[in-house]
Write a protein that binds this DNA or RNA. Structure first.
Lengths: 200, 200
DNA sequence: CTCGTTAACTTGACACTGTAAAGTTAGCAA
DNA sequence: TTGCTAACTTTACAGTGTCAAGTTAACGAG
C-alpha cells in the first residue's frame, strides 16, 4: 500500500512523506520496536540509505512520525469539540473523548508519541503540532479557572485524568472482562471532578 | 558496578539476577532503546549468548526487568502508606505520592514498564508483582466507594489521575520553568477530587 | 545544445544487534 | 570412574543504524 507509481520513483519530492506514512504503518503492524529505517526504505521502494538523506537519523524519522501523530491527535480533539454543544462542560468532556478516541484509533502511534524515547524537541513541525494540542486543552479548561486559581492547576488536572485514563486503557490489553463487565467509561469518571461553572 | 567476583563467574547461580540488574542500569544509562542482550552479557562478564539461556528472548529479559520494576513500584507505594496517618484521605494522597516518587526516582524504569511494548503477561513473577501494585490501589480507594457505587469507577479515577500526572511529568522534560514557576503539585490537584468520607 | 552544479538518491562498508544450533565444561549422583 | 544434566561458550547468519563515497537526474547559465 501507499506506493503510488509502482514504477521506480524518480525524485518527485514525495519520498519524505511516503517514508513517514510507511513508518506509521510499520509501527502499527509490528509495534514500537518495529520501526526501522531500512524497512521503511524497502517498502517505499528506495535504497536502504535514502531515508537518512531526509531524516539523518532514526531519531529524525521518529520525530517526524511523532509530529504527524501530534497533528492527528490535535485534529481528533478539534473535531470532537466541533461536534459538541457550546457549554464549557460539554466542551470539556468532548476533548477528553477526543483524547481517548485518538488513542483507540491509533494505539501504536499513541504509545509511541508518549513513550518517552528522546525525540528532537527543537524540530519545528513537532513543536507546532504539540503546541497546538496543548493550546486546545488550555482553552477548554480556561472557563473552569476561578478568580484566584492557577490556570495550570486546572489544565493539569484535566490533562492528567484524560491522559491517565487513555494511557492505562492502551496498556492493559489484558484482564478478561467478559461482556457486561466493561471498564467504567471516561464520562462517568469525569463526573467526579468538582469544577466551577455551569455543570450541566 | 554490580559485578561481585571480578573473577570469571562459575555457575554460582547468580547470573540471572545480575543480568536483570545490569539491564536496569543499562536502561537508566542509555534510555529505552539501550537495552541489549549482548551488552548485558558483556557487562556481566559472560558470553553474548548466556542471557538467552536464562531468558530465552529479549522479550524474556524485558519481562523480568518489568517484573522487578513493578515490585519496586509496589514497594514505593507501600512505604508511602506506612508513613501516612491512618485516615482514608491521607492514605489516598500517600499512594499517589508514592506513585510519583517511584516515577521520579526511576524515570527510565517507569517509562519502560508503561511503554506498552509487549511483555510476557503470563510470566508469574510479572503477574504477582503487577497484581500486588493494583491491590494496594484497590484497598486504598475502597473507603471512598459509596453504597451504590462501582468500586472500579473510583479505582480508575484515582489510578488515572496519579498515572496521568506522573507519566506526563516524566515525558515533559521540556518547558523551561524558571524558579517559582514550578508545575502545580500533585497534592494540590488531588484536592479537586470530590470523594465521600472524612475529607480531612 | 552543452556545461556545471546541486539535490536526491545508490552502493558499499562496518560495527552492532537478536537468535538459533551445536559444542563444551562443571558439578553431582550412582 | 562413569554418565547425566545444567550452565554456559562458540559459531554462524540475517537484520539493523550510520557513515563515506559514488552516481544520476534536473535545471539554469552560457
Amino acid at each position: 500500500m501507499t506506493d503510488k507509481p509502482a514504477r521506480p520513483r524518480k525524485r518527485d519530492g514525495t519520498l519524505r512523506d511516503s517514508l513517514i506514512k510507511v513508518g506509521i504503518t510499520l509501527l502499527r503492524e509490528k509495534g514500537p520496536d518495529g520501526l526501522s529505517l531500512r524497512e521503511c526504505a524497502a517498502r517505499a521502494g528506495v535504497s536502504h540509505a535514502a531515508p537518512t538523506y531526509h531524516f539523518k537519523n532514526l531519531k529524525g524519522l521518529s520525530t517526524a512520525i511523532a509530529a504527524r501523530a501530534f497533528s492527528l491527535f490535535a485534529q481528533s480533539m478539534e473535531t470532537s469539540i466541533a461536534d459538541a454543544p457550546d457549554t464549557p462542560r460539554a466542551r470539556l468532556t468532548a476533548i477528553c473523548e477526543g483524547y481517548l478516541a485518538f488513542a483507540k484509533a491509533h494505539r501504536e502511534l499513541f504509545l509511541f508519541m508518549f513513550s518517552g524515547l528522546d525525540l528532537d524537541g527543537d524540530d519545528p513541525e513537532f513543536e507546532t503540532a504539540s503546541t497546538r494540542a496543548y493550546t486546545i486543552l488550555s482553552e477548554v479548561s480556561e472557563p473552569f479557572v476561578g478568580p484566584g486559581d492557577d490556570p495550570e492547576e486546572i489544565e493539569l488536572l484535566i490533562w492528567s485524568l484524560a491522559h491517565g485514563y487513555s494511557h492505562l486503557a492502551m496498556i492493559n490489553k489484558k484482564r478478561p472482562r467478559s461482556k457486561g463487565n466493561d471498564l467504567p467509561t471516561l464520562a462517568k469518571i469525569l463526573r467526579h471532578l468538582e469544577l466551577k461553572p455551569s455543570d450541566t
